[in-house]
Amino acid sequence: SGVNQQQLQQLMDMGFTREHAMEALLNTSTMEQATEYLLTHP
């Protein structure tokens, strides 16, 4: 699906929903950016 499943699982383990985590990974290129994205786009 174009996203790193390991990163997706890590974000879900942090408490984010699958949909939200996927959106973040699709819009960013690193785990750090994805986390930042999730925190700034709740």
Rank of each mutant, 00 (worst) to 15 (best):
G15K: 03
T17W: 07
G15V: 01
Q6C: 08
H41S: 08
P42T: 14
T28V: 04
D13N: 14
H20E: 07
T17Y: 07
E23M: 12
Y37H: 07
Y37L: 06
A24L: 01
E32H: 05
Q6L: 13
H20G: 06
E32Q: 10
T40I: 07
Q33M: 06
L8S: 01
M12R: 04
A34F: 01
A21M: 01
T40Q: 10
A34I: 03
Q9T: 08
T28N: 05
Y37S: 05
R18E: 06
H41L: 14
L11H: 00
N27W: 08
E23C: 09
R18I: 07
L8E: 01
L25R: 00
R18P: 04
N4L: 11
T40D: 10
Q9H: 10
M12H: 03
N27G: 04
Q33V: 01
E23K: 08
L38N: 02
L8N: 00
Q10V: 12
T40G: 14
T28L: 03
G15E: 02
L38I: 06
Y37Q: 05
L39A: 14
N4S: 11
G2M: 14
D13F: 10
L11V: 03
G15I: 00
Q10M: 13
F16T: 03
T35M: 15
E36P: 05
N27Q: 08
T28D: 01
N4K: 09
S29Y: 10
V3L: 09
N4H: 08
Q10H: 09
Q9P: 01
P42F: 15
D13I: 11
L25D: 00
Q9M: 12
Q5A: 14
H41D: 09
M12A: 04
H20M: 15
Q10K: 11
L25G: 00
Q7V: 07
L25V: 04
T17E: 10
A24V: 01
S29M: 10
A24Q: 01
T30N: 10
Q10E: 08
T40N: 15
P42E: 12
L8P: 00
G2N: 12
L8K: 01
T17C: 12
G2F: 12
L26Y: 08
P42Q: 15
M14V: 04
F16K: 01
S1I: 13
E23T: 11
Q10G: 05
M31I: 14
L26F: 08
E19D: 13
L11F: 05
T35K: 15
L38M: 05
Q6H: 12
T17N: 13
A34Q: 01
M31T: 03
T35G: 04
P42R: 13
A21N: 00
Q7G: 06
L11C: 01
F16A: 06
L11M: 04
E19N: 11
M14Y: 07
G15R: 02
G2W: 13
E19Q: 12
Q9A: 12
H20C: 11
Q9N: 09
S1W: 05
T28I: 02
S29T: 13
Q6G: 10
Q6R: 12
S1D: 12
A24N: 00
V3Y: 10
Q9G: 07
M12S: 03
V3T: 08
Q33Y: 04
L39P: 06
V3P: 08
S1P: 12
L39E: 14
Q33D: 12
T35R: 15
S29E: 14
M22W: 09
E19T: 11
T40M: 11
A24H: 01
P42I: 15
Q6M: 13
L11Q: 00
D13S: 15
Q7M: 13
Q7A: 09
S1Y: 05
D13T: 10
T17G: 12
S1N: 13
M14Q: 05
G15D: 02
L25F: 04
Q9F: 11
R18V: 06
V3F: 11
M14E: 03
L26N: 07
F16M: 02
N4T: 08
E19H: 13
L11S: 00
M12Q: 06
Q33A: 13
L26T: 08
M12Y: 03
D13M: 14
M22G: 04
T30D: 07
A24W: 01
M14K: 05
G2K: 11
L25Y: 04
F16R: 01
T35A: 10
V3G: 06
V3N: 06
L39I: 08
V3D: 06
M22T: 14
Q10R: 10
S1F: 07
P42H: 15
E32V: 05
S29R: 09
M31W: 13
A34S: 01
R18L: 07
V3H: 07
A24T: 01
Q7L: 10
D13K: 13
G2Y: 11
T40A: 13
T40R: 08
Q7H: 15
T30L: 02
G15W: 02
G15F: 03
L38K: 02
E32R: 05
G15T: 01
Q9Y: 10
H41K: 07
L8D: 00
Q5M: 14
E36Y: 08
T28H: 05
Q5T: 11
Q5H: 11
F16N: 03
M31Y: 14
H20S: 12
A24M: 01
L39M: 14
M12T: 06
L25H: 01
A24R: 01
R18H: 06
E36S: 05
A34W: 02
E19R: 11
T30R: 02
P42A: 15
Q33F: 04
S1K: 12
M14R: 07
A21H: 00
G15N: 04
M14D: 03
L39F: 14
T35Y: 15
A24F: 01
E19K: 11
M22F: 09
T28Q: 02
L26C: 10
S1Q: 14
S1G: 13
A34D: 01
L26W: 07
N4G: 06
H20F: 15
L11A: 01
Y37M: 05
S1R: 09
G2H: 13
A21Q: 00
Q7P: 04
